[in-house]
Simulated scan of single mutants.
Amino acid sequence: MIEERAPAKINLTLHVTGQRPDGYHLLDSLVVFAALGDMVRVEEAETLSLAVTGLMAAGVPDGEDNLVLQAARFLDPVRGARIVLEKHLPSAAGIGGGSSDAAATLRALSALWGVPLPRNCLSLGADVPMCLAPGAQRVSGIGEGALPLSGLPSLPAVLVNPGLSVPTPDVFAALKEKNHPPMPARLPALGDFGALTRFLDTTRNDLTAPASAQAPEIGTVLEALEDARIARMSGSGATCFGLYPDAAAARAAATRIGEAHPDWWVADTTLNPAP
Rank of each mutant, 00 (worst) to 15 (best):
A104Q: 05
T239C: 14
G151T: 06
E259V: 09
A103Q: 01
T239M: 09
Q137D: 05
V16W: 06
A213M: 10
E259A: 14
L106Y: 03
R256K: 13
R107V: 02
E217K: 12
L85I: 00
L48V: 11
A247D: 07
L152K: 05
A35N: 13
E64P: 03
A51P: 01
G59T: 00
A136T: 04
G80E: 03
L12S: 11
S154E: 15
G23Q: 08
A248I: 07
D170Y: 07
R73A: 11
L85H: 00
V32S: 13
K178P: 10
G191K: 04
T208Q: 15
R119C: 08
A103D: 08
L106Q: 01
A93V: 04
N272D: 11
T202E: 12
A189T: 14
G125H: 06
N205W: 11
E223A: 15
P181T: 09
P61L: 01
F172D: 01
A174V: 01
G94V: 07
L69E: 02
L200Q: 09
G163H: 14
R73P: 12
P21M: 04
L36R: 07
A57Q: 05
A274S: 13
A111E: 15
A173V: 00
P61A: 03
G237F: 12
R41Y: 09
G191I: 00
A213C: 10
D76L: 11
Q19P: 06
A247C: 08
G59M: 07
F33D: 09
L190K: 02
R251H: 15
V78P: 01
G59N: 06
E217G: 08
S212Y: 01
K87W: 01
D76G: 08
E4L: 03
L243R: 01
H88I: 00
I83T: 05
I10V: 15
G237N: 10
V32K: 10
M233A: 09
A260P: 04
G237L: 09
A102T: 00
A45T: 07
D101F: 04
A267K: 13
D201Q: 14
E177L: 13
Q19K: 14
G97E: 02
T53W: 04
L48T: 02
I95T: 04
N161H: 10
T208P: 00
V31S: 08
D206H: 13
D28V: 02
N161P: 06
I10Q: 07
R20M: 06
A238N: 05
E43I: 02
A253F: 02
V115N: 06
G151R: 00
F241M: 08
A231F: 01
K9C: 05
M233C: 11
T203R: 11
R5Q: 14
A103E: 09
V266K: 04
L48N: 09
L155R: 03
P162K: 06
R5P: 13
M1P: 10
G18F: 05
D170P: 04
F172A: 12
C240E: 10
L12F: 11
G23F: 11
A111L: 14
P216C: 07
T53N: 00
L106W: 08
L271V: 12
E144M: 13
T13S: 06
A247W: 03
A228R: 00
K176D: 13
E46F: 06
P129G: 03
